[in-house]
Design a protein around this nucleic acid. Structure first.
Lengths: 152, 152
DNA sequence: TCATAGTTTAGAATAGTTCTAAACTGTTGA
DNA sequence: TCAACAGTTTAGAACTATTCTAAACTATGA
């Protein structure tokens, strides 16, 4: 048999829950993260195409429900590593729980507090103007806009 | 001796750490909150004029350092009651810790993550335009802007 | 002054997250 | 191919911020 690279077709079919696509593996490699079973499964769920908002717990539930065993600690580690690598963006809308967004482009959010639910607002949509210069010695890192909404 | 109202001059001089001003007492009364020693002390610290940003812990430290004994649970209760009453506004900038702002008017914030430090940006300064209509069944409650800054 | 409803509190409990150290696994080089 | 090693995962402990509980306390109105 040919030399095995880190992840084989056998691995994929054996742990197929989170459809491995090129993008998951490619993203991991590009970030210098070893393509382990756990990271591939999580990447498979996160990057399967549509933009997603997850919490550590929601993602852990999801991967578990898919029949894959990944510890909650690993989910936390992975979310942070992916964020570090620029594959995810952390969204702060709730003191007490962290959300991660697979859309890392410039955009903002609607946040439905009652349900802990986020909806993307494309970056070109909202315009924030006249942001004042920050005090001496500080530089703007990012401008976050959260449109808090309620059931009408 | 004349009938004592809830809070006497004696109370004030005895527990004087947080200079009782009309505004603290008046605010409590207007909100239907009993002017207890604890609430008056906390109101005294919070509403002494300048706008302030506190966390439960920072306020608890402050009141404790002032030589006044108030439990942390009471600080939490009080911050929430004041918020409920519209005397404070809760600011979400950090998943994991809640900030409360004595400025309840329309305004936004600089947030220095490294130090957990907030700076007000007056309401008229920043303009947020083209906020899209929220999805069917939802109504905009508030638009929060957080300008995250770093030491340059 | 008394009764009562509202308030405070210590300490236990909880939620979300991070840490630890031991077991495991992907990768590399021979 | 395989040993060795660095990187990874994990269970469970630990930690932080916060909320809960139930008993003691206090402001208020009669």
């Amino acid at each position: 048999m040919a030399k095995e690279s880190g992840v084989t077709a056998r691995d994929v079919s054996r742990h197929g829950a989170g459809r491995l696509h090129a993008s998951g593996l490619a993203r991991l490699k590009a970030s210098g993260l070893r393509p382990t079973r756990q990271r591939l499964e999580l990447a498979g769920l996160l990057f399967r195409g549509c933009d997603r908002h997850v919490t550590a717990e929601s993602l852990h539930d999801e991967v578990t429900r898919a029949g894959v065993k990944v510890s909650l600690a690993t989910v936390y580690n992975t979310l942070h590593q992916f964020t570090e690598a620029g594959l995810l963006r952390q969204v702060v809308v709730d003191a007490g729980r962290s959300y991660f967004d697979t859309n890392v482009g410039d955009h903002q959010h609607f946040f439905l507090e009652e349900e802990g639910y986020l909806i993307d607002i494309p970056g070109e949509t909202i315009a924030v103007s006249n942001v004042p210069a920050p005090p001496e010695g500080l530089a703007v890192d990012r401008v976050d806009v959260v449109v808090r909404v309620k059931r009408a």
